[in-house]
Design a protein around this nucleic acid. Structure first.
Lengths: 222, 222
DNA sequence: CAAATATTTTTGAATAATCAAAATCGCGTG
DNA sequence: CACGCGATTTTGATTATTCAAAAATATTTG
């Protein structure tokens, strides 16, 4: 069984690969997200390569092998099901569950995860709208036609489907302003120059900088 | 924060101290329950002593300090609340939850445990009848007047309150025979010579060897 | 009470994960 | 195309946890 550390590296590689839309991930990126020094990453990459979990090309980067990807998806699945489970059973808020699931994801059995999946009715996404990989190791619809709020044309109506940033402060801000997955809003203004988007949500108008708006994926409706 | 390993040693010391009704625990006992070699235990005991979590006397054994005991009780509390939580929310059986909680107990925050405690209505015991230490670090009523089934006089009526052995096979056997906490039974026979106890539970008569009957704590009723 | 036995500690070594700092590599610019 | 800078890898060490086997200490027994 892979150690907690290995699981974390694999998960980080997968998530970076998805975020950057590139199969290969650099040592530096990994060092930052796993929060260790670059040298540590290098030696871990050799270990992963030896275990057949990743392909490592010095000075190039890493990519996951089939086995590595499967493992990483399993970790992600555990993480996301746990998040949703905690929200549903204990009413934790979506800004609390990420950190909690981060620890628990390495400590739960497949059997428990299966039970949770069943209990939750085989959900497709976690509280942030992130897709939950299926038990057979497939990443499901990555919010197929979802686009960043930052790139929505000025007069349009959208539904928020996913939030990419998991920082508690950010999430709490979204809750305050009503910008949660499932909510619908009308884009009133979107100026590239000013770098901000204004949307009417309920009766209020909310403005967000593009930096923040990029973290919200939405679907256009009607 | 104490490592997972340290937490496990502390928990084991506490449980052995309780089980043997002696403050001091020997290196050998610990080695067996933690499942490492005796030499490993010796070195860990020095570490625990240095951290102020235990008092170590070479060739004598260890005992927990106030700080060590508090920490150990917190681990036990997490373990037992998790067990009950899994049974209540996901319908796991009592023979499944021990192993699961064993892993999870090191990966959940105090906040989560508090939520679980609240959700469960501040329970006093886990599914095996083991008392749940309180949030302020006190071990509550250890089944005060409970005695081993093996020492129950022949004609008497008892209620099962606690099961000391957590092995899944044993627990499943108890479930099959109906010998679960809360159940009541009538002792029909108890012979020291034959080393077995027979009890009528519902309409059936169940016989148990003394070895097994020692693992069941009961209260005399009526 | 001394020899045999059991328990505990010491010793020497291994593994996993990490760091800081030195050495190396690769690429863009003048 | 050489130079230099930023990214990456190496090197040398450290910490935590573990083991097996040797040495030391306790305990039991004849």
């Amino acid at each position: 069984m892979p150690s907690l550390t290995v699981e974390n590296y694999l998960k980080a590689i997968l998530q970076l690969a998805i975020a950057t839309k590139s199969e290969w991930v650099s040592t530096g990126q990994l060092a930052t997200t796993v929060n260790v020094s670059p040298g540590t990453v290098t030696s871990m990459l050799k270990t992963l390569a030896e275990s057949g979990l990743a392909t490592y090309k010095p000075y190039e980067g890493v990519s996951l092998t089939k086995a590595g990807r499967t493992l990483a998806l399993r970790v992600l699945r555990r993480h996301r099901l746990l998040e949703l489970f905690l929200v549903k059973t204990l009413d934790l808020t979506w800004d609390q569950v990420h950190a909690e699931a981060e620890n628990m994801e390495h400590a739960v059995s497949d059997m428990l995860i299966e039970r949770i999946d069943e209990y939750l009715g085989r959900p497709e996404a976690d509280p942030h709208g992130d897709p939950i990989p299926s038990a057979d190791g497939l990443m499901r619809g990555t919010g197929t036609d979802a686009i960043p709020l930052s790139s929505c044309p000025a007069p349009s109506r959208v539904r928020i489907v996913r939030v990419l940033n998991q920082q508690p402060e950010f999430l709490r801000y979204l809750t305050e302003t009503g910008l949660e997955p499932g909510a619908t809003a009308t884009i009133e203004q979107n100026s590239a120059e000013g770098g901000l988007v204004s949307a009417k949500i309920g009766k209020k108008i909310v403005s967000l900088g593009h930096r923040a708006a990029e973290q919200l994926l939405v679907e256009t409706i009607r």
